[in-house]
Design a protein around this nucleic acid. Sequence first.
DNA 1: ATAATTTTTTAGACAAACCTAAAAATTAAT
DNA 2: ATTAATTTTTAGGTTTGTCTAAAAAATTAT
Lengths: 219, 219
Amino acid sequence: MKHTHAEENYLKAIYMLSEGEERLVSTTAMAELLRTRAASITDMMQKLHHKGLVVYRKYQGVTLTETGKQSAIKILRKHLLWEVFLVEKLKFGWNEIHEIAEQLEHIDSDILIDRLDHFLGNPYCNPHGIVIPNADGKIVTKPRLLMTDVAEGTSGIISAIKDDSVAFLQYLGKRNIYLGAKMTVIEKIKFDESMDVTIDNQYKINISRKITDNILITL
Amino acid sequence: MKHTHAEENYLKAIYMLSEGEERLVSTTAMAELLRTRAASITDMMQKLHHKGLVVYRKYQGVTLTETGKQSAIKILRKHLLWEVFLVEKLKFGWNEIHEIAEQLEHIDSDILIDRLDHFLGNPYCNPHGIVIPNADGKIVTKPRLLMTDVAEGTSGIISAIKDDSVAFLQYLGKRNIYLGAKMTVIEKIKFDESMDVTIDNQYKINISRKITDNILITL
DNA sequence: ATAATTTTTTAGACAAACCTAAAAATTAAT
DNA sequence: ATTAATTTTTAGGTTTGTCTAAAAAATTAT
Ligand SMILES: [Mn+2]
Ligand SMILES: [Mn+2]
Ligand SMILES: [Mn+2]
Ligand SMILES: [Mn+2]
């Protein structure tokens, strides 16, 4: 099934607001997120209900059907992959990407997304650490560890950064630390709580407690 | 000025059909290119005329104003850059890219296009050899030479390929010949009209007359 | 339990893009 | 120069997505 630009935004909004669960989503919540009026939401919910993409009951709220959920996930997947592209390849800052991805997510081509995914090295999550659904619409969440808590000798893939200030991002850029990089703990220094790590088995650097507190890895 | 998705397609179509000149474009020509009905074209031409983007006179045809032309060029630039991206980075075949670029050209972000351009190495033309307008909307055409006619010792940048059959593209791929590569003529062999060339000053290969007849370079 | 407030839906309107069918203008043929 | 054929425009209509204002339902407060 193919959807219009607007339908896609609504489906994704319901998915985001219900956080993947069965939770009922209210008209006002959607109106605020999508910056439209409540009346517009009601109109669209009735339309999506007729199309079998949502279950909508007057005054009660709305939930996605399985079909609707799969559509929403596909759009989210595209959104997140484009965000990775913008940051990793075009060197955008994390705060500049959402608006552009909001447009790019509507490009209609399955093969394009397959190739983009592959080109980006099948990333696990977007720059904000949101897990990217795979091509089958499954969301495989791997447990994440705060770098501070990782034992000596352990390595993992950097999969999220908690602080997304420009200053921190610049620090990471300078040290060649990026999402998807392999980080290995060589030695933990008790005295100042810093640690020596390698990036992609190459550079060995020392990172302070302030840094390790803001990096999450998946094993 | 920002335009709707549809307006952009019409502006680009007028530009393509008038080939950058002042030539009047007919309603039917546009209807065919855009796969719509003549009546829809008339509607839109009246609208674009009111907006000052085209000069339209009943039954006479339409031309772009300077403003309209600049808009058209910007859209074309985006279209062509995305096509380069699809071929060079995502490894699409030349025949698969136009439809996707037709969508991507409407993404609205100046900085995105600047960065994409830079990421792609400021390409001179798209995979079909169409020159990409620069950021100021200027189209700088460099003279192009058929590889067959290039003298020994000369080198240039591959800027167009005449035959875009799958077979030829596969041949080029296998030999690491790609758009933007530097090709240098080492020796021209009179006997079979083939020539020895280097690609990016690295590989030295022999290419036959059939190949040199289909490659264009800029000095 | 009533009243006041908030949320949600309906009713009615509008702009953007398209369409078909009919009318008008242009161009080509006799 | 008429007539015939083609092109282009107009008139009227549809779908999509939005809006405002008013009505209805649900929620909260007294
Ligand atoms: Mn986002
Ligand atoms: Mn969007
Ligand atoms: Mn194209
Ligand atoms: Mn287009």
